[in-house]
């Protein structure tokens, strides 16, 4: 699976994402170095619940040179921990507002919600996200 992961200027579009352990089945989804299959620029950190993710970590990813960052939780309503994905969605909304004030494009942060059986939909969503980032240009660093 060859995918374009570079901007028009040729800088690679790096993405750091967080994937809830209970959401999309991760078997066969990741390379040994925790990058997404077919998307070696996308590093995925598996977490126990999407609500575990600190907004500060998303900021850190952007500051460290990632072009974008995302969190993927369970389908809304099916969070294993009842409310993790709703809480995370809220936190991301607030983080977007804060970043917009700091002249960082809020579109660099995405929130997805996919279940066990939605591997393909998840991969498509990440690919679409990478495409959007490619249009925005590479990371800030």
């Amino acid at each position: 699976m060859a995918t374009k992961t570079e901007t028009a200027q040729g800088t690679p579009v790096r993405v750091v994402g967080f994937l809830c352990d209970w959401a999309v089945r991760s078997e066969g989804l990741l390379n040994p170095d925790d990058t997404l299959v077919g998307m070696p620029h996308v590093t995925v950190i598996r977490v126990p619940c999407s609500g575990f993710v600190k907004p500060g970590w998303l900021e850190l990813a952007l500051r460290s040179g990632a072009a974008g960052t995302f969190v993927c939780g369970c389908p809304m309503g099916d969070c294993l921990n009842r409310e993790g994905n709703w809480i995370m969605e809220d936190r991301i909304d607030q983080l977007r507002k804060r970043l917009a004030r700091q002249k960082v494009d809020p579109d660099r942060i995405a929130f997805f919600a996919y279940g066990l059986h939605d591997q393909q939909a998840f991969l498509d969503a990440v690919q679409a996200f990478v495409d959007r980032l490619r249009a925005l240009g590479g990371g800030k660093a």
Binding site: M1, D33, T35, G38, H41, T43, I45, W57, L60, A141
Partner: peptide
């Protein structure tokens, strides 16, 4: 891990 992911050199392996 975030920093490693954000700065990783373009990995060749797929």
């Amino acid at each position: 891990r975030i920093q490693r992911g954000a700065q990783a050199p373009a990995a060749a392996a797929t």
